[in-house]
Design a protein around this nucleic acid. Structure first.
Length: 743
DNA sequence: CGACTGGCCGAGTTA
DNA sequence: CGGCCAGTCG
């Protein structure tokens, strides 16, 4: 490991900084993960620091995993034994499990996801007689979450807002209080609480804080610009003894203001730690100069930032292409053809990524991709762990882990349908409260209560089934047990009886969940610090902190990727499409204040800097969104980028090769795109005319093989042919792009 | 008492 | 266009 050789000068200075605070301002693509991992390696190998004394914090599991992989590549896994490379939430989770009793929780506490939080809040609103029309659960959730980001407890909240005597805030304060009491009573925390409870633990238990301060003599925080006040405080407490704190971030990539990220944490790091060293990484190893120019052009419109300018030793590369579509379908078809052209020229599907501001925009693209047989995967949207069947099985496991988990119990009480509903549950809940026992216990003895007489038999047999499953808990491994519960619960039988495509896919998801459990088992075996907790508890915690991005299902599969810009942060792709660059969508119509628009602009900066070789920016004059078709105005970001729209007439030609950025007179009257590859322009294939084909013709397609045209729609460039292929079935293709030939 | 259906309202980014 | 709730049917 020759640091001098493998790092540039700034990277080297950052990686070899050992003691005292260090701020690394790392521009997009400047090799920041590289610097962190080399610094870890340097500390351990050259400075004699024990891995046990190192804490590295990231925001996503994916980033944590990548960092751990790269560090063990440098040092070998055996030399990392005892290091913590975790997300904020996972690190706090580990600490809290160990000391939960010090703050009034038991160590198998559960983490509520957003939908469970909503359920609890709705219940609170109902009990407080607050009309949801005036104050709904969503709004309350926002108030509470923002308060928690700033470490404002319900007591503080009440105090502060009492002085304003504002009716709305008073109500929020009441809900906040009841919400926290409910969580505590259920031995549950929300995501925000995990950080807050750890801070509380530290503040109330100096011995615990001291222990972790000593343990984590060296602390590193990735994506520091995304920290909120609570996370800042967590880090500050841990680092306050040795001050060996290294934070890495980029103020230009701060895009989580809406969840409380406070950009001041990074902008004011130097004031907070005044003897700190600051290193800027500006050399970019990811993108071409054209892409970086665009990024610089966009971000210079922001005022609240530290100056930074990305540069590269790579050449100018491909010009950036802007495409103005007629409508959302046209936009999708343009992307499809650009991808098909790229693939025809030797690129892989996995080289292409489509980024958008909001999840709803993936719909049209998905339809077009599947229509043309292009493999793709969508991150986000309806997430795996949000699917009904997955939540159901998770709730089964939660009840089996902790029979007092009423929220989970309520969810599975009628899954599969067994004729028990809310009314029975509520009766049982009241009885349990009255008698100081738990709901499951009441179910078991349902025959003794007149309120439950009608459903008593069903309730008792359900409770017995749960008890039966509980007995088997310790006799098998996690994945085996998960499988057992999935079948034993009757979920599979019910789905099989439904016999629909949807049920089929739910069964597949449940099977996939078994492999999630399987993966967990494998990871646990590799993990140095085998958890002392029982397997089920720890498995449940792990999946509570998992997201879609973390499931590495055939990661190297050759597929086009679709995701929101937020999800794309930290990733890179050869070809990037940023779609729906229109006012109201990007920037969002909700961004009104100047600082909100600046955050949108940073988001645009993030999107642009994901691209390595080629960047497409698309927008449409018409778009169907939320069930309405509207006229759209091009995004102000396109104007700031000074890239004119492509000429409509050239659509079919231009799509024949992805290298044809070409010079075009733009909508803003300026010629900006640099000249494309002339050779590539000349390589374009001759345009296919609709007149060359008719229904019934036998044709050949490069990918799908031989087939028969069964239908033709539209005319000219827009002709769509439906072909029954001999081996691959029915496909609908754009004639202009399908490159068909007669046989 | 629970299941099912129709109508209405709302529509962002996330660990 | 879709999720959720209220009202009605079984």
């Amino acid at each position: 490991m020759d640091l001098k050789k493998e790092l540039n000068n700034e990277q080297y200075l950052a990686a070899t900084h050992v003691e005292g605070p260090l701020l690394i301002l790392a521009g997009a693509g400047s090799g920041k993960t590289r610097v962190i991992t080399y610094r870890i390696a340097h500390l351990i190998k050259n400075c004699g620091v024990s891995p046990y004394n190192i804490l590295a914090i990231t925001f996503t599991n994916k980033a944590a995993r990548e960092m751990a992989e790269r560090a063990s590549f440098l040092l070998g896994e055996e030399n990392l034994y005892g290091i913590w490379i975790n997300t904020f939430h996972a690190a706090c989770g580990k600490i809290l499990r160990r000391y939960a009793d010090r703050i009034g929780f038991s160590s198998n506490f559960i983490i509520y996801d957003e939908s469970e939080v909503q359920v609890v809040l709705k219940e609170c609103l109902r009990r407080l007689n607050i009309d949801e029309k005036y104050l709904d659960a969503r709004a309350v959730r926002n108030y509470i979450s923002r308060a928690k980001d700033e470490m404002i407890s319900w007591k503080d909240f009440t105090k502060t807002y009492n002085t304003y005597n504002n009716h709305m805030y008073r109500m929020v304060a009441d809900v906040y209080k009841m919400y926290q009491e409910t969580l505590l009573a259920n031995n549950a925390m929300d995501f925000d609480d995990m950080i807050l409870m750890t801070i509380k633990l530290f503040k109330e238990n100096p011995d615990v804080l001291e222990y972790y301060q000593e343990k984590f003599k060296f602390i590193m925080v990735d994506e520091y610009q995304d920290t909120n006040m609570a996370q800042y405080e967590f880090v500050r407490l841990l680092a306050s003894k040795y001050k060996n704190l290294c934070v890495v971030g980029d103020d230009d990539q701060s895009i989580y203001g809406f969840r409380g990220a406070d950009i001041r944490n990074i902008l004011e790091f130097e004031n907070e730690y005044h003897d700190c060293k600051v290193i800027k990484l500006e050399q970019n190893y990811r993108s071409t100069q054209n892409i970086l120019d665009a990024a610089n052009k966009i971000i210079r419109n922001n005022t609240e930032r530290r100056s930074k300018r990305l540069w590269t030793e790579q050449g100018r590369g491909e010009p950036i292409t802007r495409y103005e579509a007629d409508d959302h379908n046209d936009e999708a078809l343009y992307i499809v053809s650009a991808i098909q052209d790229g693939v025809r020229n030797g690129m892989k599907y996995s080289d292409f990524t489509i980024l958008y501001r909001i999840n709803a925009l993936s719909q049209t693209i998905e339809k077009a991709l599947s229509r043309f047989g292009i493999p793709y995967r969508v991150y986000g949207g309806l997430k795996f762990f949000d699917r009904k069947e997955i939540k159901d099985i998770v709730c089964y496991l939660r009840v089996l882990d902790n029979p007092l988990d009423d929220v989970a119990l309520r969810r599975i009480i009628n899954v599969p349908k067994r004729g028990i509903g809310d009314v029975s549950y509520n009766h049982a809940y009241d009885i349990a409260m009255r008698e100081g026992t738990n709901v499951l216990n009441v179910f078991l003895n349902a025959g003794n209560y007149s309120e439950l007489s009608r459903t008593a038999t069903k309730l008792t047999s359900f409770a017995l089934k749960i008890m039966d499953m509980m007995m088997k808990k310790d006799s098998m491994g996690i994945s085996e047990y998960v499988k057992y519960v999935i079948y034993e619960s009757g979920m599979i039988d019910e789905l099989k009886r439904e016999n629909t495509d949807e049920a089929e896919s739910r069964i597949e998801n449940l099977m996939e969940f078994i492999s999630v459990a399987n993966e967990y088992e494998n990871e646990i075996q590799e993990s140095p610090e085998a958890e002392s907790l029982n397997n089920l508890t720890s498995f449940l915690q792990t999946i509570a902190l998992s997201t879609d991005m973390d499931r590495q299902e055939n990661e190297d599969a050759d597929m086009v990727t679709l995701m929101t810009i937020h999800n794309s942060k930290g990733l890179e792709f050869p070809v990037v499409f940023v779609i729906a660059m229109e006012e109201g969508t990007f920037p969002s119509m909700r961004a009104e204040l100047p600082e909100e628009v600046e955050e949108e602009r940073r988001l645009c900066y993030v999107a642009i800097t994901r691209a390595m070789k080629k960047l497409y920016l698309t927008h449409s004059r018409l778009r169907l969104l939320y069930g309405r078709t509207n006229y759209r105005v091009p995004s102000r970001f396109l104007r700031e980028l000074e890239i004119g729209a492509e000429n409509e007439k050239d659509k079919s030609e231009k799509s024949t090769n992805f290298r044809t950025g070409a010079v075009r007179k733009g909508a803003f009257g300026r010629v900006v795109n640099s000249v494309g590859d002339v050779k590539a322009l000349n390589q374009k294939t001759e345009t296919v005319s609709a007149n060359d084909f008719k229904v019934g013709d036998r044709v050949k397609h490069k990918k799908f093989g031989n087939g028969t045209i069964v239908k033709m729609e539209g005319s000219g460039d827009k002709t769509i042919v439906e072909i029954q292929f001999d081996s691959t079935g029915m496909k609908r293709l754009m004639l202009a792009y399908a490159k068909l030939s007669h046989i």
